[in-house]
Design a protein around this nucleic acid. Structure first.
Lengths: 134, 134
DNA sequence: GCGTGATTACTCGGATACAAGATGTCCGAGTTTGAGCGG
DNA sequence: CCGCTCAAACTCGGACATCTTGTATCCGAGTAATCACGC
């Protein structure tokens, strides 16, 4: 029960992409070097973000990744769901009656967390990222 | 990023222990049979709950497990922490400046969830469990 | 100068390798109850 | 009837085995920009 490292990479990458100019795409090598990950692995993570529709890739020389959406539309939850999936964190598989009361409580708690992640946009931190990442 | 099955087992077991009489301990075999788990594995899970101080084990014949605390003192969060650990769900390991802004947001969200799990007691469901588990 | 082809700098996707954690299983050891047996 | 012993019913803990998932690497393929070369 922990968030994966991939989620951490995704969040940080999105933050730098938001801070960067949307005109010029940023190469994976550059993004990977900052975080100390291999470019191919980061590329795999970013593919999920592309499929989620929040960034787009530019092939060829001088290629890379850039935002494909307005930066204010991207919440923490969007990124987390793109990487971790949208399935519920808790699932009671054995069947007792129609619904599991325990699961109901767990889902409620999960929604509390998601609500906070949904209303927090990455652009809220964008102006500070240059400082903290530098 | 999912809750483990062990947490599910622990929660359901605690629910039946709360519903049962605290005088007579319930054997692992009986608890395991209801949930379809092997007794030895469930025993391993329950050991964590014992160390957390919320139940106690009774050795020997007619032994088993029973509550060692008032049932109103046991929250969802207590059990989850006993099984999953108390570490933060999100940890940004690479160092940029003093603190990671992303992690700060994630921890806030996590606290929202924990707050809900903390204020929800298992005894709230105890009277309904006999129905849903039967 | 201009088009054409080759080279270079990229991303993309699948296949693969590796490690860690979750999920169980097995077995020996300790502990208590209770039955059986002898005095 | 009492006390002792022994077997049975339990939990406890560690040592395995297995399976899934996360993490990461490697390589070939495709793509676009740039450079080189010849006309």
């Amino acid at each position: 029960m922990k968030f994966s490292k991939a989620t951490n990479y995704a969040l940080h990458t999105m933050l730098t992409l938001i801070a960067a100019s949307p005109a010029k795409p940023v190469g994976v090598q550059q993004l990977a070097e900052v975080q100390g990950v291999s470019p191919t692995y980061l590329s795999k993570i970013l593919t999920k973000l592309v499929k989620a529709g929040m960034i787009e890739s530019v092939s060829g020389a001088n290629g890379g990744y850039r935002l494909s959406r307005k930066k204010d539309d991207i919440s923490f939850l969007d990124i987390i769901h793109a990487i971790e999936g949208t399935a519920s964190l808790f699932e009671c598989d054995f069947n007792h009656g129609a619904e599991c009361l325990i699961q109901a409580v767990m889902v409620q708690a999960e929604e509390k967390m998601e609500q906070h992640l949904k209303q927090t946009k990455l652009s809220d931190l964008a102006d500070k990222v240059s400082v903290s990442l530098g």
